[in-house]
């Protein structure tokens, strides 16, 4: 099970980085969202993926192989943070579009050089 998640996460990383390297801000936004999810999936897969046993602590429950709840809890936090960051990036790109009426990275750079 873990190898599938690892593979998916790896592919998502590749797609995310590829999109981040693009010269268009919409692609960069998508890249950043995908990258955030790739990291979440990575975090998920390190906490032992296991579908039979819930991670409830009973007597001697520690000896039964169960999924680790802590990584899921950590992912919840990082999903929220990633979501907030993505929202902020989208808002910022929108503002840049309003002001420069372009979404090309090169245009923003040119605008900067004109100052």
């Amino acid at each position: 099970m873990e190898w599938m998640l690892a593979l998916t996460s790896g592919i998502l990383f590749a797609i995310g980085v590829f999109c981040l390297l693009d010269g268009h801000f919409i692609k960069i936004v998508f890249g950043s969202v995908i990258l955030a999810n790739a990291v979440n999936l990575l975090f998920f897969s390190v906490g032992r993926v296991n579908r039979d046993t819930p991670a409830l602590i009973k007597d001697q429950a520690l000896h039964i192989p169960s999924a680790n709840p802590l990584s899921s809890a950590a992912i919840l936090t990082s999903i929220v943070i990633g979501f907030a960051l993505s929202a902020f990036i989208i808002a910022l790109v929108f503002r840049a579009y309003e002001q420069l009426s372009s979404l090309e990275v090169d245009q923003v750079v040119e605008h900067k050089e004109l100052e």
Partner: peptide, 26 residues
């Protein structure tokens, strides 16, 4: 805005680096 864009995107990338390291360390 044009100054903030590279700042935000690069810091985002840095955060993702840190988070994936934490995941692997964990």
């Amino acid at each position: 805005i044009t100054g903030a864009l590279p700042y935000v995107l690069l810091n985002f990338l840095g955060s993702m680096f840190i988070l994936s390291t934490i995941a692997l360390l964990y």
